[in-house]
């Protein structure tokens, strides 16, 4: 990868991912790792889209709203803007508790 502090695998990270956050939880993005997420997109594309939408290392996120049923998709605040995404794809965003 990019020599960034992103861990090589989601497992060794030991932390949580955005897809498992509950409504009201705040966190800081620590990495983007699309492995393990099933998409229609070519390899590397989901990661790039996440980054383009502001989900990049250091961003502050907060889960604002959950849809129905299954509390999915979720609406999250990413720094100043609000983003809607499904929990399945949010798994690609690794987070740590907000400082």
């Amino acid at each position: 990868m990019s020599g960034h502090p992103t861990p090589e695998t989601g497992q060794s990270h030991g932390g949580r991912h955005l897809g498992e956050l509950k409504k009201g939880e705040r966190a800081r993005v620590t990495g983007v790792d699309e492995r393990g997420v099933v998409t229609t997109l070519p390899e590397g594309e989901l990661e790039r889209r996440m980054i383009e939408m502001g989900l990049v290392e250091g961003s502050h996120v907060e889960v604002l709203h959950e849809a129905f049923p299954g509390r999915d998709p979720i609406a999250i605040r990413v720094n100043e803007h609000t983003l809607a995404l499904r929990r399945a794809e949010a798994r690609a965003v690794l987070v740590a508790p907000a400082a």
């Binding site: 229609t40 889209r49 996440m50 939408m53 803007h81 609000t82 983003l83 995404l85 499904r86 794809e89």
Partner: peptide
Amino acid sequence: KGAREPLLMELPA
């Protein structure tokens, strides 16, 4: 066939 296009949508103010 195939998974759905991911949802990554800005909710504007």
